[in-house]
Amino acid sequence: MGKVVLVTGVARQLGGRFVRRIQREPEVDRVIGVDAVPPEHHLGGADFVQADIRHPTIAKVLAEHAVDTVVHMDITGTPLGTRGSRSTVKETNVIGTMQLLGACQKAPAVERLVVKSSTSVYGSAPRDPAIFTETTPPKSLPSGGFAKDAVEVEGYVRGFARRRPDVAVCVLRFANILGPCAESPLADYFSLPVLPTVFGYDPRLQFVHEDDVMEVLRIASFEARRGTLNSGTFNIAGDGVLLLSQTARRLGRPTVPVLLPAVTWVGSALRSVGMTDFSPEQIRLLTHGRVVQTAQMRETLGFEPTYTTAEAFADFARSRAPGLLPPETLARTVDRLADLVPAAPSEERT
Score class of each variant (00 low, 15 high):
residue 162 R to L: 15
residue 159 G to V: 04
residue 193 P to R: 03
residue 162 R to N: 09
residue 150 A to Y: 03
residue 202 D to K: 04
residue 160 F to W: 07
residue 231 S to M: 04
residue 175 A to D: 07
residue 220 A to H: 01
residue 232 G to F: 11
residue 222 F to I: 06
residue 226 R to Q: 14
residue 224 A to I: 06
residue 247 T to N: 02
residue 215 E to A: 14
residue 217 L to G: 03
residue 229 L to F: 12
residue 152 E to P: 04
residue 226 R to S: 13
residue 238 G to D: 05
residue 163 R to M: 13
residue 231 S to N: 10
residue 208 V to N: 07
residue 212 D to P: 08
residue 247 T to S: 13
residue 195 L to Q: 05
residue 227 G to C: 07
residue 247 T to G: 03
residue 156 Y to V: 08
residue 241 V to M: 10
residue 203 P to Y: 03
residue 175 A to S: 15
residue 151 V to S: 10
residue 198 V to H: 03
residue 213 V to M: 08
residue 212 D to F: 11
residue 215 E to D: 15
residue 242 L to V: 09
residue 164 R to F: 10
residue 217 L to D: 04
residue 193 P to E: 03
residue 159 G to T: 04
residue 228 T to S: 14
residue 207 F to Q: 09
residue 225 R to Q: 14
residue 167 V to L: 10
residue 158 R to M: 12
residue 216 V to E: 01
residue 197 T to C: 05
residue 187 A to P: 01
residue 225 R to T: 13
residue 150 A to T: 12
residue 230 N to K: 15
residue 192 L to C: 05
residue 244 L to C: 04
residue 179 G to N: 03
residue 155 G to R: 14
residue 192 L to G: 03
residue 154 E to P: 07
residue 221 S to W: 02
residue 192 L to V: 02
residue 221 S to L: 08
residue 175 A to P: 08
residue 208 V to I: 15
residue 200 G to I: 07
residue 222 F to L: 09
residue 189 Y to Q: 03
residue 223 E to W: 04
residue 199 F to R: 15
residue 215 E to K: 13
residue 220 A to Q: 00
residue 237 A to V: 06
residue 234 F to N: 03
residue 160 F to P: 01
residue 223 E to R: 13
residue 214 M to H: 05
residue 167 V to N: 09
residue 186 L to S: 09
residue 225 R to H: 01
residue 201 Y to A: 14
residue 174 F to A: 02
residue 218 R to W: 14
residue 230 N to E: 15
residue 231 S to P: 01
residue 230 N to T: 14
residue 153 V to E: 01
residue 152 E to S: 13
residue 219 I to T: 08
residue 183 E to W: 00
residue 181 C to G: 11
residue 171 V to Y: 02
residue 157 V to I: 11
residue 172 L to R: 02
residue 183 E to A: 15
residue 237 A to S: 14
residue 172 L to E: 02
residue 168 A to S: 15
residue 208 V to E: 06
residue 204 R to C: 13
residue 208 V to S: 10
residue 158 R to P: 00
residue 214 M to E: 13
residue 225 R to F: 00
residue 191 S to F: 00
residue 182 A to N: 02
residue 198 V to M: 11
residue 222 F to M: 04
residue 169 V to G: 09
residue 204 R to W: 13
residue 171 V to A: 00
residue 171 V to N: 01
residue 165 P to V: 11
residue 190 F to S: 00
residue 165 P to K: 10
residue 245 S to Q: 12
residue 216 V to A: 01
residue 235 N to M: 03
residue 209 H to N: 10
residue 216 V to Q: 03
residue 161 A to Y: 06
residue 196 P to H: 11
residue 164 R to V: 08
residue 232 G to V: 11
residue 183 E to R: 13
residue 165 P to E: 12
residue 240 G to V: 02
residue 195 L to W: 12
residue 157 V to M: 10
residue 231 S to R: 13
residue 247 T to M: 14
residue 236 I to N: 02
residue 175 A to K: 06
